[in-house]
Amino acid sequence: MSGGAQLSVTNHRSSARHPVELAIIGEHRRLGDIMLNLINVSTTGFMVRGVLDLGRGERVTIRLPQIGRIEAFLVWNDPDRAGFQFERIVRADDFPKMIKALQPNPRLRSPH
């Protein structure tokens, strides 16, 4: 895709990532519905496992518990994984509720 997205959220690679194993459906303007295997999520984005036919900057819309629909841009892609950045940062008070609903590894969940 020429031009790519102009990402307004800076890359916060230090954001805490929470492991998940969740199959979700992403909506893409060219490909329609695509299956994504979500393997971690943070307040600024998520990572998926698997091969994607997407270029850097392409957008997908996903639906997450507590957050609802949120758009994300592909930041990087290798043969086995891909990293997406949300178009907006997930609110700090919504994030723990989303994590609890996704039920990642309880050892890594914060105690509140």
Rank of each mutant, 00 (worst) to 15 (best):
M1H: 12
M1I: 13
G3W: 06
G3Y: 07
G4R: 12
A5G: 12
L7A: 15
S8D: 09
V9P: 02
T10D: 12
H18W: 10
V20D: 00
L22E: 03
I25W: 00
H28C: 03
R29A: 09
G32R: 02
M35D: 10
M35A: 13
M35R: 14
M35V: 04
L36I: 08
L38V: 04
V41P: 07
T43M: 14
T43W: 03
T44M: 09
G45E: 04
G50D: 01
G50M: 06
D53T: 04
G57E: 06
G57T: 00
V60I: 15
V60K: 01
T61E: 11
L64F: 01
L64T: 00
P65N: 02
I67N: 03
I67R: 05
G68W: 10
I70V: 10
I70P: 02
A72Y: 07
L74R: 07
P79K: 04
D80H: 14
R81N: 05
A82Y: 07
A82H: 04
G83R: 13
F84C: 11
R88F: 09
V90W: 00
R91A: 14
D93L: 04
D94C: 07
F95V: 05
K97S: 10
K100M: 14
N105V: 09
P106S: 11
R107Y: 09
S110W: 06
